[in-house]
Amino acid sequence: MSNDIIDGILEAIRLLFTFDRELWGIIEVSFRVSLTSTFLAALVALPIGSFIGLREFRGKKTLSNLINTFMGFPPVVMGLIIYLLLSRSGPLGSLGLLYSTSAMIFAQFFLAVPIITGTAKAAIESVDPTLKETILSLGASERQLWWELIKDSKKSIIAGFLVAFGQAISEVGAVMIVGGNIRWETRTFTTSIVLNTRMGEFGMAIALGVLLISIAFIVNYGLTRLQARGG
């Protein structure tokens, strides 16, 4: 067993530094899927989240609770739902998207939307109410106010985006179900680690694990830097 670990680590180093084609393919797929899904989610979630944060309306509390629940939505269940939607007999089956990166983007998009919506809402709500009033009393329209508040809370909003991205790239259940873990096509860090561990190919698994942890570290480092910066 201990031999396996040492062999695995050596193999991981070799793969990383010889720029193995398959390894880099997996990295490319993972980043493409997670960045696209997070970016698309931000486009939808930022306006929704900040609108909820800005306005007072009936049912806001219930909606907030709902968003908070969905922020911790189990990825496997999301995978199942998207699978059922995209499967040949499902309502969107005719699109033929199952087992493609598009399906994975689809699933991660729905996982990221509540996270970014929730953080954007919280960010807008946490802005000093007297600042909101000052901006309004200076004559700002609602859209001008909205833009000012986004600018004022951009740190928290970027943080929300990074959290969503970190979740997406380290998520395994949904991409496994809707992507199918097809070599060269839909294999990502996480699904590949699962597969290689099962097969006893610890080298590849460890190499990918190290990379994934490094990404997590970089994202977290970015968050800390962001929060430490004044202004």
Binding site: L131, S137, G139, S141, E142, E148, D152
Partner: peptide, 23 residues
């Protein structure tokens, strides 16, 4: 309406005791 409120606010100025400025 909301829109008219903005138009009226633009005729007014509200200066508060503890000022707050934009970043």
């Amino acid at each position: 309406s909301r829109y008219k409120k903005v138009q009226y606010r633009r005729k007014f100025s509200f200066v508060r005791q503890k000022p707050i400025v934009r970043n």
